[in-house]
């Protein structure tokens, strides 16, 4: 308990326990760093403290080894970043459009719509994969760009996947923006589109950032859907690619794999830092007043 009479020296056991916990928490990430720079590239050769320093592992990601397999790391990385950015953008955009309607308009079926969204969100995405696979397969026969093995198709599936939960989150935030702001703009002559762009969206930046960040990181992390829809190794996203990389030549690829992991972490961590200040505000809502 918070006892102001206690002296600081009595805290040593707290520090001790916390340092043990921290050691456990940071051990794997630290190990990845050491492994990435370790000259011995095999899994069996790694140790926690690197014996020698090298950049070979990174080179292995970008340059094909003589007689070795083709490397696709750059393609995977690019694919993941592009699809994650696009997904974040469109999730926020399309979600905000719908959330605005649900928050500000009164129309038939509004309540039912919100409940329905909640219900279908409980249908785990995986259950749908068979159907989605077939839909994408058929779509591809008509519009090849939206077919199997295409990132565009994957993007559409991602967009629909988390739509309803994001919609709920954004609607909650929009509800906390005083309706007088809309009404005042209406009296001043703004159209609904202008109110949406000029008033609501700028005020909703916290929640939009959080939703966008979750979509971004979520996409970088997604494995299941991508593994069903993407077929060839040159079209993989990072999780798929690295999984394939480590499962085919597990033992000898370890150094390069660690280097790849190190690089792959960067976008998510950058995204995390970038919107950190909005996370609390975005999740607690209602901080717009005044």
């Amino acid at each position: 308990m918070n006892d102001p009479t206690k002296r600081r020296g009595d805290d040593w056991w707290r520090h001790l326990i916390l340092w043990v916990a921290i050691a456990l928490a940071v051990f794997p990430p630290l190990y990845v760093i050491t492994a990435a720079f370790n000259a011995d590239q095999t899994l069996s050769g790694t140790s926690f403290l690197p014996r020698s320093f090298t950049l070979e592992n990174f080179k292995g990601l970008f340059v094909q080894k003589e007689g070795g397999a083709e490397v696709f790391f750059v393609r995977w990385f690019r694919a993941s970043i592009i699809i994650a950015l696009l997904n974040a953008f469109f999730t926020v955009f399309i979600g905000a459009l719908s959330a605005y309607a649900f928050s500000r308009f009164r129309f038939r079926g509004r309540r039912m719509g919100m409940l329905f969204l909640l219900l279908i969100q409980m249908f785990p995405g995986l259950l749908n994969l068979v159907a989605i696979y077939l839909i994408v397969l058929r779509t591809g026969e008509v519009v090849p760009a939206l077919g199997l093995n295409k990132l565009t198709a994957l993007l559409l599936v991602y967009l629909s996947g988390a739509m309803s939960i994001n919609l709920w989150l954004m609607k909650g935030f929009f509800d906390s923006i005083p309706t007088e702001l809309d009404e005042s703009a209406r009296v001043d002559g703004a159209t609904p589109a202008q109110i949406f762009w000029g008033v609501i969206l700028p005020l909703a930046v916290p929640v939009l950032s959080v939703v966008g960040m979750f979509a971004f990181v979520g996409t970088l992390n997604e494995f299941m859907t991508a593994s069903v829809l993407l077929e060839t190794v040159d079209n993989f996203t990072l999780p798929l690619g690295l999984q394939a990389y480590i499962s085919t030549n597990f033992e000898e690829n370890w150094g390069s794999f660690a280097a790849g992991v190190l690089i792959a972490q960067i976008p998510a961590i950058v995204g995390f830092v970038f919107v950190q200040k909005y996370i609390i505000a975005g999740l607690t809502q209602g901080s717009v007043k005044g």
């Binding site: 794997p28 190990y31 990845v32 970088l220 992390n221 690295l242 792959a264 972490q265 998510a268």
Partner: peptide, 8 residues
Amino acid sequence: PGFLSLLV
């Protein structure tokens, strides 16, 4: 990212 930690 979780998938990286899992693979590690």
